[in-house]
Nucleic acid binder design. Sequence first.
DNA 1: ACGTTACTAGAACGATCGTTCTAGACTCTC
DNA 2: GAGAGTCTAGAACGATCGTTCTAGTAACGT
Lengths: 211, 211
Amino acid sequence: MPDTRTRILTATGELFRRHGFHGTSLKQVTQAAAATTGSLYHFFPGGKDELARAVLTTSGTAYQELFEIIADGAATPADAISDFFDGAADTLEEHDFVDICPIGTVAREVASTDETLRAASQAVFGGWIDAAARRFAAAGLPAADANELATTVVAALDGAIVLARTARDAGVLRVTGRNMRALVDARMRAPVRNTGANRASSAAHRSRATS
Amino acid sequence: MPDTRTRILTATGELFRRHGFHGTSLKQVTQAAAATTGSLYHFFPGGKDELARAVLTTSGTAYQELFEIIADGAATPADAISDFFDGAADTLEEHDFVDICPIGTVAREVASTDETLRAASQAVFGGWIDAAARRFAAAGLPAADANELATTVVAALDGAIVLARTARDAGVLRVTGRNMRALVDARMRAPVRNTGANRASSAAHRSRATS
DNA sequence: ACGTTACTAGAACGATCGTTCTAGACTCTC
DNA sequence: GAGAGTCTAGAACGATCGTTCTAGTAACGT
């Protein structure tokens, strides 16, 4: 049996995945972790916020390591990307569409509210983007292109997880993975910076955003 | 001054964008809407759940209409996509990175918990994907390809919003929009179905997913 | 004028929230 | 074996949660 601190960390991560930050109570945490309130506040004196921060960074680095492992086993960065998406799809199906990763959920809940948690999620996302960008750059892509591509891939991954969970269909992840692979392949072949036009759509956006 | 029901709806949508479903209390709602508990339960007898369902469908269709407007004003579907991403980026900056849309946030919180809310979010996402797919198909893409492409675009949009809010940098949305535009262009040019290989990465995923 | 319906107002309910606090049970060191 | 950490145990706190309920006002058809 793992020590109390990691039990609390694991249980919190799992609960965050299912119900998010505000939807998870510390009573649920202590029960799931077979711990008591005293222990929780002993290891995390800052309470729920500190606990959340620890969960974010812990599972953030865990997923980064997972990506590195998969990327090490892949022939090309494009393979690594589609492998990661496919692996996520498999995991989602095996876990009956319970969320794989708590970070996107918590990030959305706290981005406008809790500055320290926002910063913690940003650090995690940044680490992922850097990790992917390093692979692209190592394969010959210019640094700026690598970074932009990695940003898009991480965004698509996070969004695809939401869609897949909501639709209870992991195919969304596989499809998005294939498209990301195609995008990576295309960019590798022609690493031209594309400065798209910013047309007059922001006014329409603005007038509708509050409805 | 709008009628009470729409005031409640608007206020709830705004609060959901900032704090999510569980992070928003009905007291906050009534205060922001200048309404009372009695009015809230008069219009939404089902309580918080029914209110959330109404908010999801309302702002879901609002954003779909917004997409149609932008797409109508764009020369090609690829233009429509990058216009929409750029417009979202502008709006996010103007609103100081408060979330643009409550649906992704709520969907994440309730996907594993509340079946009716999950179904409501799925309907919204499905509507968006269909709307985008229709544009792609009208431009000549086979139906299956159009649907897969639309799924990817919606996923990337949702994920890019999360990343942009978290990093407080709308550039993420613009970059992702450019990449989505490139992807759409590429698929339009060569609408070949790409069946990516599912390599042996799910085992690694599985062993790490709980950490 | 009256009854009916639509809506507002907010006190009150039990449950649960995050947090604090005191007390006890284990280690170790000296 | 005394004392100082380290960790566990859980009762108790005030605040706030979603919901219910009763009472009241406004508007309208007849």
